[in-house]
């Protein structure tokens, strides 16, 4: 950069890739490319910067990028294991098939869901229950129907299990990571798990359960 401090840039100083005398429309093209690039880069940073908590200024800036980021599936916070690694949220189910055969299990299921990516897909479904989806009756009913497709069950009782991580002291004292004291349960009720004809839950929301 210091090379040209004392003299204006000459044609000889131009990079090899630059055309000698770009036409006006070429210049306009480059200007448009740079503007689009700037918009993309700003949007890229504004998206995660607007994850709560954020200022009204950030939010108003985000309003200009929301549609763009959402359309391109770029609207992410990148909050991996942040702000703190939290407890796991699982879903316990129990019910019957049409022929009366009992069905029971937990998703995700480390042994039943293979390969590991399929396990993680199921794990993400239940991890959402730790957020607003945990209160959504529609989502609970949808989980029951999805489980119905997987298990063949006609009706399922669902229970959210929250599994906190063990403290260092607990592990040192010899408690296993799956110690029953590390689980908390919340019954969601019984849901129709059959085909879509009757998607409504059969029972109202159940009250919170105790420790498991």
């Amino acid at each position: 950069m210091s090379k040209t401090h004392d003299a204006p840039q000459t044609p000889e100083d131009r990079p090899d890739d630059a055309p000698p005398n770009p036409r006006w429309w070429t210049r306009c093209g480059w200007a448009a490319a740079h503007l689009a690039l700037a918009y993309h880069l700003i949007s890229l940073a504004v998206g995660p910067a607007t994850m709560p908590p954020s200022s009204p200024t950030q939010q108003s800036l985000f309003a200009t990028s929301r549609g763009y980021l959402t359309a391109l599936y770029l609207n992410h916070g990148y909050h991996y294991f942040a702000p703190d690694p939290g407890p796991s949220t699982l879903l316990e189910y129990e019910g019957t098939k049409a022929d009366g055969t009992p069905v029971a299990g937990v998703i995700p299921d480390a042994e039943g869901h293979f390969p590991r990516l399929l396990y993680h897909r199921h794990f993400m479904l239940t991890e959402r229950l730790a957020g607003p989806a945990g209160l959504s009756r529609e989502y609970h009913a949808a989980l029951a129907r999805g489980l119905g497709i997987e298990t063949g069950a006609e009706e399922l009782s669902l229970t959210i299990l929250t599994h906190r991580m063990s403290e260092v002291e607990e592990v040192r004292a010899g408690f296993p990571l799956d110690d029953p004291a590390t689980y908390q349960s919340r019954a969601l009720g019984t849901f129709d798990a059959g085909p879509l004809d009757d998607p409504a839950p059969r029972t109202p929301a159940a009250s919170d359960g105790g420790s498991r």
């Binding site: 294991f81 690694p85 480390a110 991580m165 260092v168």
Partner: peptide
């Protein structure tokens, strides 16, 4: 944080 991540059984 690493302990909490590593001790997450799931």
């Amino acid at each position: 944080a690493i302990w909490k991540t590593a001790s997450n059984l799931e």
